[in-house]
Design a protein around this nucleic acid. Sequence first.
DNA 1: TACGGGTTGGCAGATTATGCCATCAAGTGG
DNA 2: CCACTTGATGGCATAATCTGCCAACCCGTA
Lengths: 161, 161
Amino acid sequence: MKVPQPLALDRYDRRILELIQQEGRISNQELAERIGLSPSPCLRRLRALEESGLILGYRALVDARQLGYRLMALVHISMDRHTPERFANFERQVAALPQVQECLMITGQEVDYQLKIRVEDMDGYQQLLLQHITPIEGVSGVHSNFVLRPVFENRGVPVEL
Amino acid sequence: MKVPQPLALDRYDRRILELIQQEGRISNQELAERIGLSPSPCLRRLRALEESGLILGYRALVDARQLGYRLMALVHISMDRHTPERFANFERQVAALPQVQECLMITGQEVDYQLKIRVEDMDGYQQLLLQHITPIEGVSGVHSNFVLRPVFENRGVPVEL
DNA sequence: TACGGGTTGGCAGATTATGCCATCAAGTGG
DNA sequence: CCACTTGATGGCATAATCTGCCAACCCGTA
């Protein structure tokens, strides 16, 4: 473990970050070739980026539609009383629901959270909402928008220059 | 290339999908151990899942905050005229902005798109909005919510039993 | 010029991936 | 009940990759 340095990334590090955000399973050899370095220093840099916490991990992207999740929705939640306990409890309950892909606490006069959920269809949506989200203590309002088309998702973080 | 089958995933395939969504760079050997299969058939299954398109790819997760992106916002866009050309043009322009991490076309009486953006700070936000998003032809309204805290993101798609 | 810190490239051994083949289990028809 | 077919497994040999180590190099400084 290393304390986050003032963070000095040269162009090699940046190229590495760009490439592994696109091809997370690229071999170190090919990575080295593409950034114009030999395998040894390339691997050292990659490991250093991982150790520093800049690279949080690796994920395979799975096609949700092919798995039967044909409906994606953005669910906006408002809470009645804004106590830390209420929030903590809500977040814990929501984290336990696998259909909830993302949970963001956001600004907004009427809204406290936005959830991104994936379900099979409207039935699944209704079930999730009525049986698992609405009943959570403190939830006073729920409003959803459905995703008509995901234009793009899962883009990498820009690593300038 | 294979045509998407009726999709019959046994428990081995499901375990593979679960594991590589959590550890995208896991070695085939360890993957095989964890699912209780020898390396050969495990690798065959993994490759088959990739070929079938169920696995779309692999990504490294990069810590945006450490890269200086301290502000995340959800930007809601409304368009004045709902013609396919307007939409296509908007999507193209928005895709060219690296700060836009996600673009979803959504339902809503006043809203057509939700963008998830990452910027350095409020200055960056203002610049992005005024110089690159508002000027896009057809954009008639913009309303943003800021993310106070990302409770969780980037969760895997659930692969039931 | 000599020195020190940091990085590189190359090499050897360990680990992993890959293709091939015999074996095995399940289902079919004789 | 026995061939026979289909599809998947496990093991093995080979190829490719990773990993740790060390000498060489670059660069700023004394």
